[in-house]
Nucleic acid binder design. Structure first.
Lengths: 347, 347
DNA sequence: CTGAAAGCGCTTACAG
DNA sequence: CTGAAAGCGCTTACAG
């Protein structure tokens, strides 16, 4: 357990070459005789040598870390996005460093500072508003953006998503009194959805009664969704349908209807932004937009790779993940066997 | 975006002291005049200096990374455990490096090797069987263990958990034909639960019909639980109750009963190891053991901290997280208002 | 093609 | 209390 790991000087000694030669042999430098390279590799294998990547980064000036800052890695949406990011970044030789902001600006600021002192090549941030001044490394914002900053922005097509959901509610089912449960609009994802909802209702000349709009908490918890739905039902604004800005709000909202003996979709229809985890196994099955956290993570990481390769200074690229609706039962559609899938994109 | 971060030599120059003095001033070394320390700190602040933690680790020989290897970080159980580990490790100045084994021994081996070349102080592993020879740094196994290896083992009290569930099924409800859905016993968590089930049934002189035992897949997916339950129902062994080794299997099993128009608990009772995420919002509400991934992660990380502080060589400590049962509806208990909570421990 | 040397950004004995 | 120097484990010009 305490045995020291061998270093390159030991490998060089074992192979009978100079340190520099051993380094070149190991790193695939072309100007090394085949026979020499083999000798060095054999020595490395014999000693169980593995290069010290920290020393390598320090000396070469090419950091091999990428920092990721999310509100909460225990949130399955961010956990999924992280996984996808790791897949693309690790295949390019980068190691991911994750930190949680806990949705607090001060903690986010600390996390970024900490990441920077570990020499990250770049940053992927779902911001909670803690980005003081622009980080000195290429930065891609995802999910929760900082308008105007960074190399690229990657998020879902929030506006389009709300439009697709409203289209279904209004166009297919003919609902008019539609309620909305969203998160506090301090983050772009919440703000964009709320704005799209009010704009979409106005465009359809449907009522935007304040009693039809409720707010969950900033952590998007099911419990806050339950309370928001309870408020909606208390207000006696008699919504025919509710549009939830997240799967978690939907779970809570459904529970709130059960609390009063109501049923979805019989008594009130519900559609949702984001399928719940294991959505196939939850009753009632939700008509919802796919979460696509994997795509989001993958695209965001790819954008960062672009920045790392040719970090040209230019206005931030705004990438939107197209929305995908799965129609199931919660909206009032009966037929589960042939789900209608509307694919829309903003590109 | 491209501005270089200032180094300690620049801070020293700005403060008019030698490099070594600047280093001591910043690191809180006692032998520094107050006035000098203030000058250095002022210079550091002025330049926006942040120490390079990689260089510090390399020179001091005290690595500040801890490696975590899990089957799949997108799995919310592991994501929750990771979060807890981060909380305790970051407060001690460590930075966590996570990698996924994807439940494959070869990938786990690669992950460990990669982590080691980044100079981790220690390792936290939920093993998929890829630990070739003992890592040269203190290692704590959690959830999925490697018997005999490492500094400590931290897992839930699997045997006790099964006992508590059987006690409830048999003692409270009087069920006798009890089925089991578990994961392939290649990992200790699955093996311990299966063994405890057969032993517990035998001890109670209840039937252990092979038709009453079904296996899901190694990723513990709901879909495989659904198929396992379907097989159980097909076998016509007529179970009165089913004990699922995970929340995911339970979700699938419930879906399988719905597939045939059966209902839980009316037609068949169900109890589960591990509450589902957002379990309060899922119908039927499950009688299940708390997942406790936060406690698990916290305890495992604390054990590693112990090893890091006084890494005495000794037989691995075996720590078990006590089990906690929440009685709800899926077992057949009607009263939801006063959940009976049985606390049992193996300590 | 190979070796000797400098140096990445730090910490830490060793003198004074 | 402070400075000058060595060195962590590497990479990379520079000679030869």
């Amino acid at each position: 357990m305490a045995k020291r790991r061998p270093t390159l000087v030991e490998v060089a000694a074992e192979a009978g070459v100079a340190l520099g030669t051993a380094s070149r042999a190991m790193s695939g430098h072309p100007a090394v005789r085949d026979e020499t390279r083999r000798r060095v590799q054999a020595a490395a294998r014999k000693l169980g040598y593995e290069p010290n990547r920290l020393a390598r980064s320090l000396r070469s000036g090419n950091p091999h870390f990428v920092g990721v800052v999310v509100p909460d890695i225990a949130n399955d949406f961010y956990a999924g996005a992280l996984k996808a990011m790791q897949d693309v970044l690790e295949s390019e030789g980068y190691q991911v460093l994750v930190m949680n902001s806990e949705r607090r600006a001060a903690r986010e600021r600390e996390a970024i500072k900490s990441l920077l002192s570990q020499e990250v090549a770049g940053l992927l941030i779902a911001t909670a508003g803690g980005v003081a001044d622009e980080p000195p490394v290429p930065t891609v914002y995802f999910d929760s953006l900082l308008p105007g900053a960074g190399f690229a922005h990657v998020a879902r097509a929030n506006q389009d998503g709300i439009e697709v959901l409203l289209d279904h509610l209004v166009g297919v089912h003919g609902y008019e009194r539609i309620a909305y449960i969203g998160a506090p609009p301090d983050v772009t994802s919440a703000a964009e959805r709320l704005d799209a909802f009010t704009a979409g209702m106005a465009a359809r000349r449907l009522p935007i009664d304040p009693d039809l709009i409720a707010e969950g908490d900033e952590a998007w918890t099911p419990q806050s969704g339950r309370e928001a739905m309870a408020r909606l039902l208390d207000a006696a604004a008699n919504p025919e349908a509710v549009l939830c800005a997240s799967d978690t709000f939907s779970l809570g909202a459904i529970q709130a209807t059960r609390d009063r003996g109501l049923r979805v979709p019989r008594d009130i229809a519900l559609v949702s932004f984001d399928d719940p985890l294991y959505g196939e196994f939850i009753e009632p099955r939700l008509t919802a937009l796919a979460r696509q956290e994997r795509v989001l993570g993958k695209v965001a990481a790819s954008q960062l790779l672009n920045a790392l390769r040719n970090g040209a200074k230019r206005p931030a690229l705004n990438v939107r993940i197209p929305v995908e609706l799965t129609v199931r039962r919660s909206c009032g559609c009966a037929d589960e066997t042939a789900p209608h899938r509307a694919i829309r994109t903003l590109f």
